[in-house]
């Protein structure tokens, strides 16, 4: 392939990098300007969105073969199970005191 076709590839990479940097800027600004749950939700949502761009545009998950896609899917599913089971326990436990009784005596 001729070297002159490098420009579209460089442009594509530059645009995607720019989008991710703008998303990161939104994330930082949201934390500095917003309060409460929005200051938590916006940076996490931006992280998920940026990771999705990396997965689809750079890692090209959608173009991977079936075994690879299953591997990626299983990893995400197990992560979900890990969080679901742990928080099912954590959120339904009786209150745990921050320190053991008698500590420091």
């Amino acid at each position: 392939m001729a070297e002159h076709s490098a420009a579209p590839l460089i442009r594509k990479a530059a645009w995607l990098a720019l989008v991710m940097l703008l998303l990161m800027a939104c994330s930082v600004v949201s934390v500095l300007m917003l309060d409460g749950w929005l200051a938590v939700a916006v940076p996490l949502a931006v992280a998920v969105l940026t990771a999705t761009i990396v997965a689809l545009a750079f890692m090209e998950v959608q173009k991977a073969d079936v075994v690879s896609q299953i591997s990626a899917g299983v990893a995400v599913a197990f992560l979900g199970i890990l969080f679901a089971l742990t928080f099912a326990d954590e959120l339904t436990r009786a209150h745990i005191p921050p320190t053991f009784e008698g500590a420091g005596e």
Partner: peptide, 26 residues
Amino acid sequence: NTILLLCSSATMALSVWAGHAEMRRL
């Protein structure tokens, strides 16, 4: 560090795409 790493993601992807197109210099 986030800026450096996001840019590195793009340059890494660029080299993979260049590999598909057989552009050794890129």
